[in-house]
Design a protein around this nucleic acid. Structure first.
Lengths: 206, 206
DNA sequence: TTTTGACCAACATGTATAAAAAGTCAAAAA
DNA sequence: TTTTTGACTTTTTATACATGTTGGTCAAAA
């Protein structure tokens, strides 16, 4: 399968560019030059830029999900699992921040619907991992029983929300400093600790 | 003080336009026509559009804060207080959604720094109210002791984040449906219940 | 003291044009 | 036959300029 190796080679080159300069500011010509082939050759392996982008992102999603499930297996307590998840995401954003943000401001030659679908797919996978982690913790009596699906969704929304709020606060001055991801990480850890503590005991309803 | 009544009259007319069409899409001429005066007359009472906008928003902030402190006084339990806060905000956004969003996309003839400062001021006030509510609940032994300032901040971020995530999800298709605020309200209530439950018991650290 | 019509300048918007990048293809190289 | 390419076309983005709208001013009227 020589063709798969070549495709992987292209994907890696594209990923490097996307992570450093974002998707929009990366041209097919630049990717081709990086691996010393012609642009036309890229189009022999990928029908268009959109599908190359999609393959790059799929690659990252698989990588992330493997890391998530590794964490679930080796963590004894729910907080260890959740903090592990947060750490993976922090590292991911520090590496691929520009790739991520440009997904929101996609050029018109990119298939926006397909990208959104991919984003939703990634979130579904992540949500399933959180769901699994909570289910496991309920099984070991670390947490009380509750509606796992709904609670995972709320928890996921909270994490995403903290991230959005933190980035929105500094995004006015264009350049997102790398330190922002550590701040987000810390806030998410504190919120997770309180949230999880709320799942250790039966809810009080006055 | 006849001049103050006239100013108030203008502010109310401006608020109606801002809430229906947003700040940017409202011209000084339209506000003037609504109350049957000339545009030039508006500039007799307000130096520029920016300061009119500021006065309108200050008016809303005072209104909201009065409602917040009323809720604190009459609620027996922390969850009643917090749900009361959420209800006030829900009603506010349902009424003044466009006013709120256009603050983020301010025209260049508006003083953006001043608007941002106002936004921060409103958040500070809101945060203080949350802080007070938590402090009161700790006093009645409804909640355990914790770092109130830090916790209020995290809680506030969570609420804002849930709102941002929910709106971002539908904002692609331009028209924000009114039902979104009920959805946000429900999610914020669930998150608040779990969060507060986590503040009823001492934190466990494995 | 308050109000206004006429006026100006700044800004947003639309359009036409040029530059850049995506995407195609017949032919060459392997 | 499979892979690669340079030259070409089409689409998208960036630039410049013209035009209309809107914020803001002022001398004069009420």
């Amino acid at each position: 399968m020589d063709i798969e190796i070549k495709r992987q080679h292209i994907i890696e080159a594209a990923l490097r560019r996307f992570s450093h300069f974002g998707i929009n500011k990366t041209t097919m010509n630049e990717i081709a030059e990086d691996i010393s082939v012609s642009k036309a050759n890229l189009y022999y392996y990928f029908p268009d830029k959109s599908s190359l982008v999609v393959e790059v992102i799929k690659h990252l999603i698989e990588e992330g999900m493997a890391a998530y499930h590794h964490i679930i297996e080796e963590s004894a307590h729910i907080m260890d699992t959740l903090v592990g998840f947060l750490k993976i995401k922090k590292d991911f954003f520090e590496k691929h921040y520009l790739l991520h943000v440009t997904m929101g401001y996609a050029d018109s030659n990119l298939n926006i619907d397909e990208l959104n679908a991919l984003g939703r797919h990634a979130e579904t996978k992540e949500l399933a991992a959180i769901d699994l982690a909570f289910t496991k913790a309920i099984g070991t009596r670390e947490l009380v029983t509750f509606d796992v699906e709904k609670t995972s969704q709320i928890y996921f929304t909270i994490l995403k929300g903290i991230s959005m709020v933190s980035i929105a606060k500094v995004t006015n001055k264009d350049i997102p400093e790398i330190s922002i991801f550590s701040e987000i990480f810390e806030k998410q850890k504190i919120a997770s600790a309180i949230f999880v503590n709320g799942l250790r005991y039966k809810m009080i309803t006055n």
